[in-house]
Design a protein around this nucleic acid. Structure first.
Length: 198
DNA sequence: GCGACAG
DNA sequence: ATCTTGTCGC
């Protein structure tokens, strides 16, 4: 890591990881959730925050320029800024926020879901479509994602669910059993529509 | 050196 | 993530 900026970002991630709070939220009793995703059209990113109160879905789009490149393990630099702006709309209304990407299933326990959760001090869970880091350990019916001997999430079907912040493994497992979150599907769909019509 | 590598 | 038609498979 001789690049000064990446060297700096690694220190930032280590600090974020040190401030993660792993506590039980009780996903089964959560009444409102938010979901974050983003789509691009050239260097313009369209971040979407979907809000679901258990009855109706709402959403908010925040578009802006994105110039930081995609570098594995540093995804948050490219997507977190716009996602956090989109989330401002519902931030104090949702009890749990789902982020497209990993949480603690990251080399430095600092995936985008964890970064957003720690910076905003809110409960988050990361839901990714493919693997980044951690070994997959099967124990009966569950396939855990293990990082440095610590179970940080589970793999369910083709998806990876991991602790972001202010939730615990039980919460992550409970959420994963409900299948891929509808709110995330909506966020993905809406972000693609947003960049489409331009 | 080689392979892996969220979106 | 994005570029993109048809096509193989559950």
């Amino acid at each position: 890591m001789e690049d000064p900026l990446l060297n700096f970002l690694v220190k930032f991630q280590n600090l974020v990881a040190k401030n993660v709070s792993i506590t039980h939220l009780g996903v089964e009793n959560v009444k409102s959730i938010c979901a974050l995703d983003i789509a691009y059209k050239g260097n313009i990113g369209y971040a979407v925050a979907v809000y679901f109160d258990g009855n109706k879905y709402e959403h908010y789009v925040f578009a802006g320029e994105v110039n930081f490149p995609y570098i594995p393990t540093f995804l948050f630099m490219r997507e977190a800024p716009l996602m956090m702006k989109a989330l401002e709309k519902y931030q104090d209304q949702c009890q749990l926020t789902l982020v497209d990407g990993h949480g603690l299933a990251h080399p430095r326990r600092s995936g985008i879901a964890t970064v957003i959760g720690v910076l905003l001090n809110i409960p988050t869970i990361g839901v990714a479509k493919s693997r980044l880091f951690g070994e997959e350990v099967r124990e009966g019916e569950e396939t855990y994602i293990v990082v440095n001997g610590e179970k940080v999430g589970v793999k369910r079907g083709k998806y990876y669910f991991s602790i972001g912040n202010k939730v615990d493994l039980v919460d992550v497992i409970t959420l994963s059993r409900l299948g891929y979150p509808e709110a995330l599907k909506l966020a993905d769909k809406i972000s693609k529509e947003a960049k489409g019509k331009r």
